[in-house]
Design a protein around this nucleic acid. Structure first.
Lengths: 341, 341
DNA sequence: TTGTATGCGTTATCAG
DNA sequence: CTGATAACGCATACAA
């Protein structure tokens, strides 16, 4: 183990003053190009890195970003959609020299709020991957004076990067009308706790008739996010003596998987009897039997755009940015639907 | 925003010395029960939390754990198996007051090794979720004098918590022989870069004949971890003019999904013509068509056990612990196999 | 352009 | 048992 280096030892080794070392490292003050190079080279060869804690104590940049990833209702790191976005976010910010820490509600034995944690850790910014609207601690954090970005929640004052749900629904409806040549559909949504789900339902209700599409059953809200919820919702939808939909549109692929399973189980052929369209394009969607037609959200773009924007927010606090960034989605045609040519 | 509190302001508010406050917070030194309670109560009511950076500068505990999650070969946060373990690990350590940070190779503009990063951040311990054996930086870290645990890599000097692969393979073989009443199998493995895969192959080769089981084809090593790799491996396996296996045993569910797809595509019925057994019991395994029989690894137990052990390592450096902790696995019977009663 | 002194919030070592 | 006081490693205003 090499001995511990500080700006003092470095200074001594180079016959300079500690302050000078600090200046060249931070690019502040005036240092001659000669000594500047000398210091830089020496630092590189001995592998010196300024101690984070001391630096934090004195200044405010920490090059670290706090991550809020609320775990509940089947949603956690296991949830492939959000994990994936987080992954891309992580990759990008790390390339830019930032570091990720999960925000927790205690440090050692001390309990604290999100906000306290952030102040305490002096994070440069906050990334809300999944958040809960009822979480007061989150609200406090969002309203605080700290750069903050989300890929999920939409609240005033918070910068959010999301997919364009309106476009997604329009694509779906146009596809059903123009390519599938169908008009009788049913919509199965995820729970209302997610703003994205609610938005999609609203767009469906708003635009359906424009596309000459009829909802043969009122929208069913699944009780949760996963397979089982979709499965149960489908039992409800298809057990009715009501008219059978030609196409079932589902607000997430996770749900759609359960929907498809139940539909087939009840004796319908997909896509011959009933066609199914999902949302998200999770990794498994293409491996369903049959492979799922769905609206693809660009997870890489979502994560990366959020990362870029947060870094801009941090590094250029004087600029102003749009609060909502909407990213385009794409229709992915697979075998759970059948186009009529 | 409430004004900034330090032990100094706290001391003033209570008419005490800063040092005294520190003592009661850390439980060091001698403080009368009276003032002790007074300080504690005051701290709680005003919501004071010691500043991490100052504390780090002075002492060594940080209540933070560095996470190594090497991203490559299809494996990243999107990989549900490891994400899931990480999730459970995270939940446990957070309950214990620890915090997770991803270890990165730079801070701001400074590049550093894993080891340097850890020294710099003064993490109490390191958790290697997924690591690469060829990574020299990792080796340096493992050999350094810092508590370190892994759920994946097995190297001398590193504490590892893994599933019992030997038991998993024995369960599989016994199941094939005693319940499926079959004897001709083929084994499809993940790439050799993962020790777990290699171990499983070795156990199969070692124990097959003890169970009267014959490998009708030499083990195929898929080129990677995902669906497509399994798919391709199966093309290779079944396109041969060799004898057809009665059961295909696959070393991961991710692969098994591709295996199943390709098997069915080639005109075989599962499980009537060919039966398939996976490994891991990922969340989607039960939703395959047909649902996949597999060896379930207890991801929660894996993560939690690793967490417990790491905390023990941190808090009781004087004790010694077994380097390898093997956790039991379970056979989950589903419809990709068919027992003969 | 370079060096010096001081403070950031804690902990720890002493005296009192 | 309690109160000063010196580090911890760095940044910065200020002096040289």
């Amino acid at each position: 183990m090499t001995k511990k280096r500080t700006i003092y030892t470095i200074a001594k080794e180079l016959n300079l003053a500690p302050g000078t070392i600090s200046k060249v490292i931070n690019g502040t003050g005036h240092v001659s190009e000669a000594t500047r190079e000398r210091v830089l080279r020496h630092i590189k060869t001995v592998g010196y890195v300024p101690t984070t804690s001391a630096r934090m104590l004195k200044s405010k940049r920490t090059y670290s970003i706090g991550v809020v990833f609320t775990e509940e209702s089947d949603v956690g790191l296991e949830h492939s959609f959000f994990s994936s976005i987080l992954q891309h976010f992580k990759t990008y910010v790390e390339k830019k020299g930032y570091e990720l820490s999960f925000i927790v509600k205690q440090i050692g034995q001390h309990e604290l709020s999100y906000y306290q944690w952030c102040m305490n850790k002096r994070v440069d910014g906050v990334y809300i991957v999944v958040g809960n609207y009822d979480d007061e601690g989150l609200t406090e954090l969002i309203n605080a004076d700290i750069p903050c970005i989300s890929n999920d929640m939409v609240v005033p004052g918070l910068h959010t990067v999301i997919s364009d749900n309106e476009q997604g629904i329009k694509l779906t409806l146009a596809y059903i009308k123009d390519e599938l040549k169908k008009s009788k559909i049913a919509y199965i949504s995820g729970p209302k706790t997610s703003k994205a789900f609610v938005e999609r339902v609203e767009h469906v209700n708003h635009y359906a008739k424009d596309y000459g599409i009829e909802l043969v059953h009122e929208t069913i809200f699944a009780e949760s996010f996963g397979y089982t919820s979709g499965y149960n919702a489908t039992s409800e939808l298809l057990d009715q003596s009501h008219e059978k939909p030609e196409v079932i549109v589902v607000s997430s692929d996770d749900l759609a998987l359960g929907v498809m399973k139940r539909t087939i189980e009840l004796g319908y052929k997909v896509p011959e009897d009933i066609q199914i369209i999902g949302y998200d394009d999770i990794a498994f969607a293409k491996h369903f039997t049959p492979p799922l037609t769905t609206i693809a959200q660009d997870r890489e773009l979502l994560g990366e755009t959020a990362a870029k924007l947060l870094i801009s927010l941090i590094e250029h606090p004087e600029r102003s940015f749009d609060e909502i960034t909407k990213l385009p989605v794409k229709l992915v045609r697979r075998q759970s639907t059948k186009e009529i040519i």
